[in-house]
Computed example of a mutant assay.
Amino acid sequence: MMKFKTISLFLFIVLMAVFNAYGQGLDEKYYHTHRGSLNNSCQKFQEGEARIAFLGGSITYNPGWRDSLYTYFTHTYPETDFDFINAGIPSMGSTPGAFRFERDVLKNGPVDLLFLEAAVNDFTNGRTPTEITRGIEGIVRHSLREDPATSIVIMHFVDPVKMKDYRNGNVPEVIRLHEEVARHYNISTINLAKEVTERIDAGEFDWENDFKDLHPSPFGQDIYYRSMKKFLEGACEVAQKDEKLKTTQIPGPLDPYSYANGTLIEPGDDYASGIGWELVEDWQPSDEIGTRSNYVDVPMLVGVYPGEPIRFQFEGNTAGIAVASGPNAGIIEYRIDGSPWKKQDLFTQWSQQLYLPWFFTLASGLESGKHSLEIRLLEEKNLESEGRQAIIRYFYYNAE
């Protein structure tokens, strides 16, 4: 009998090892926080038409888990006509997401389900806690104001710094901030950063050979997809029992200056009247440095040399510029309503490699009313930059 028990224990250990080796040792549901329900979107999936948007950075833009979800939805609901919107743009977190929300997410109308991720870029791009809260809350409020029946899922993707935080017993600050917004608006979340960390620590796979990078390998993309699939199955299994669409009562904002009314404005001829500025209708780089979609062959307001300031009039509490920050990015001075001039270096740590789309918020927390933003180029430049240009794709502001 003792020998049988020993053999049984040995077999159990072997089976558990095999179980873990194939990524089945931990249950995905432990990393899912279901708040409210996805009843509305799950109901829409069965009614013949549904619109699903994916808003995030490069991990959303790149092929992988998102394509797997396309297949999941179309196979699970074969009679439904889906409008999938890939609003992922590399390098962009919640602040750009809030200001481009109208253009990129709502371009075909309200969405039934919004997948939202920004935890990686909000951290790597160095956004402050205030910016992170205002950005992610702005996206949520804008979405719910457009259609209170929209379902939202916030996802936290993994990177090495988040893994280190969890291993030290800490919740990464950006995830904590996103979760505060999710709790306030009763939004469900999927914590893939914690899930990947704990699966690696359990010996299911490793980072270097399997998952490989914060831009996951096909193996890592499948880890993401499987967790999302299980989340959706659990949510819709419950939601199918209720046939009534419900609208969300939008609570008051956590931050009264959240970017809930983000707006993009393309520059026109009226902005190029200042000496030293030129409106280029179909801008292209003069070198062989790469660009990003929507930041080439489009109108750009280019500051060629230090001269006169340009002025952007707006009515709201926040304003900034979205630029193509390349190897020749310069330094600007700016001021609001005639206040003292402040400096902003437009060169980033990635500018030597790419004309990087970058959102510089120049003023926020302003009093309600009309304001004037002035911008001028400086003669001085970043020591790593090859020039002194400002290449402006958009002005942006948060309307009243």
Rank of each mutant, 00 (worst) to 15 (best):
G303Q: 11
K44S: 08
G97R: 04
V153P: 00
R35C: 03
M1S: 13
A50N: 08
K246D: 07
F19E: 15
F19K: 11
L113S: 06
T361C: 04
V238E: 13
G109W: 03
E237H: 10
L254F: 01
F157Q: 07
L356V: 03
E180I: 14
Y30R: 15
V238F: 08
D210G: 05
S188M: 10
D104C: 04
Q352W: 12
G338C: 07
S364H: 07
A118W: 07
I136T: 13
K246M: 09
T248M: 03
E131D: 09
I310E: 12
T189W: 03
I139C: 00
L377M: 01
P256K: 14
D159T: 05
A98H: 07
L245A: 10
P299D: 09
I59T: 07
K44R: 10
E374N: 02
P63S: 13
I52K: 02
F10M: 14
G109R: 03
K5W: 11
G57K: 07
T74D: 07
Y355M: 02
D206S: 15
C42Q: 04
W350R: 15
R66K: 03
L301A: 10
E117W: 01
N191Q: 09
S37F: 01
T128H: 04
G276D: 04
D83V: 14
Y30S: 15
I175D: 05
D67F: 01
Q43Y: 05
Q46W: 02
G220W: 01
L214Y: 08
K44A: 11
A260R: 11
N186V: 12
P299W: 09
R35N: 04
A329Y: 04
E278H: 13
T71Q: 12
I321W: 13
E384R: 03
E102C: 09
V323T: 15
G316H: 13
L114A: 07
Q313S: 14
K44D: 05
E281H: 10
I275M: 09
S188E: 06
Y305L: 12
Y295I: 08
I289M: 10
C42D: 03
D337W: 08
N108P: 05
P251N: 05
A235E: 15
E315A: 15
V181T: 11
E278K: 15
K212T: 06
I13T: 12
R35M: 04
L378Y: 01
W358A: 09
I375D: 00
I59W: 00
I152F: 01
P306A: 06
V304R: 15
D104Y: 01
Q389C: 00
D210P: 05
S293H: 10
G203L: 04
D287W: 10
K381N: 00
